[in-house]
Amino acid sequence: MDIQVHTEHEVIAIDADSHSILVRDLARRKDYHHHFDHLLIATGSKPVRPPLPGIEASNIHHVNSLDGGIALKRSLDQQRPQSAVIVGGGYIGLEMAEAFVLHGMKVRLIQRGEQLMSATLDRQTAELVADSLRRHGVDVQLGQSVTGFDSNNGIATGVITDQETFPADIVLLGLGVEPNSDLAAAAGIPLGANRAIAVDRRQRTRRADIWAAGDCAESYHLVSRRSVHAALGTIANKQGKIAGINLAGKKAEFPGIVGTAVSKFMDTEIGSTGLPERTLNELGIQFVSAVVEARTLPRYYPGSSPLTVKLLAEPESKRLLGGQIVGGPGAAKRIDPLAVALHAGFTLDDLLYLDFGYAPPFSGVWEPFVIAARQALKQV
């Protein structure tokens, strides 16, 4: 496609005024300036690694990059660890807990807060996830803060919390990510939510001819109606598409996000979209909620499994604010119609009589979130 690719080159500075970047050729160990007409910053995110004592031990891993995943896999193959401690109870923590369990390891997960997945789930749905971990042998430790790591000859032997020390052959950090925006900030490019690069709907920064997309850039949240930082691959791909269209001379705008994400741990699937209670409280948004216990398929049909749905809505306008689903196989992707509803600005009333497909191999007559909408309406 006639695209010049320079590997082993690092951009170490951006001069927005002169439209140039300072590039370091790592192989030849020399620097040079390169002019640009337009510049796209797509530096992604970096894992959160707090400066705790012992954190530089060789068997403390993260999987927020390909290199990190390769290093972890190498450690598992060569060292054959028998026990793992995961620090952090978000999506990465859950998915790596599954991987370690399937590896036949003894797994412990430490979460600073009083529930798992606090950024996306509420207490009721998070407890279902924690129950699933415990059911598969994971020791879930909530309400403990990691203060450091015991080590011997550069190898971590234990994870120290504010309450006790847990032995470990290998440690996985799942503390989330932060935007890799230092290069932009040093160039005087304004930052926004959570130090992500501030962009408009076209992915353009506040400096002429400089654009940003992906995990390093902020997004507009359609429910909170505020700029946020959401490091999700789905969002990064869409922002990259929008930036590319605009850089190619056409016009496109990224309408915004609702924060939809899915995950799983063993036989438990998790889906969420919109805003959870904690965020609504922080923003001062009034809400009502309804929780419904249902099933993925009719009870009599083979393969039916439990399913819990939670909906949140504004009491006065009845505007849908968020949804969460936790259940067996077939549960997580049922969050997608709720994501569409959030994009469309649906109210609880709008959900009641949507024309969904029905047959026993796929669903019950009434979608569980429709039943939850009815329950929420009773409160308003």
Rank of each mutant, 00 (worst) to 15 (best):
A243K: 13
R195Y: 07
L128D: 09
E269T: 03
A294M: 01
V291H: 06
L311W: 05
V370R: 00
L307A: 08
V87R: 07
S289A: 14
G244L: 02
S20T: 14
N64L: 15
A341E: 00
D209W: 07
H221N: 14
G137E: 11
A156W: 00
P360Q: 07
K241P: 00
S18L: 13
G68N: 10
P50S: 06
A185C: 10
S145H: 11
H103D: 14
L52Q: 08
F356A: 11
G93W: 04
S75W: 15
R295H: 15
V129W: 01
T43D: 04
I285E: 10
P302V: 13
Q115Y: 05
S75F: 15
E178W: 06
R80L: 09
I55C: 07
S20E: 15
Y301A: 02
L52A: 04
Y91F: 15
F149P: 03
T279K: 14
K264Q: 13
T125D: 10
R206S: 11
T120Y: 08
L66M: 14
A344C: 08
G323I: 01
L283E: 14
L275G: 01
D122H: 06
E218T: 10
L283M: 13
E269V: 01
D209A: 14
V85S: 13
G328V: 00
Q4R: 14
A344I: 00
L102S: 11
G240M: 06
F362A: 14
R29I: 02
M105Q: 15
F362K: 06
V48M: 04
R74F: 02
G259S: 04
L142P: 01
D169N: 06
N180D: 12
P53Q: 13
A376D: 04
R28Y: 06
R134T: 12
V146Y: 02
D162F: 08
Q379Y: 08
K378S: 12
R374I: 02
D17W: 08
L26D: 08
C216N: 12
R108S: 15
V370Q: 01
R112L: 11
T205V: 08
I3N: 09
Q141D: 04
V340D: 14
A184Y: 02
L338R: 02
A290C: 07
A126T: 10
G284S: 08
P51T: 00
A373V: 13
D25C: 08
A290H: 05
D336C: 04
L311S: 03
R295M: 07
A217I: 10
F36S: 02
E316R: 11
G259A: 07
E314H: 15
Q379R: 15
T296W: 01
V87W: 07
F346P: 01
S305Y: 03
E56A: 15
E269G: 03
E10V: 10
A376F: 00
I110A: 07
I21M: 10
L222R: 07
Y358E: 05
L173N: 04
R299W: 11
G90R: 05
S227V: 03
S289C: 03
T273W: 03
S145L: 12
D336R: 08
V140R: 05
T268Y: 05
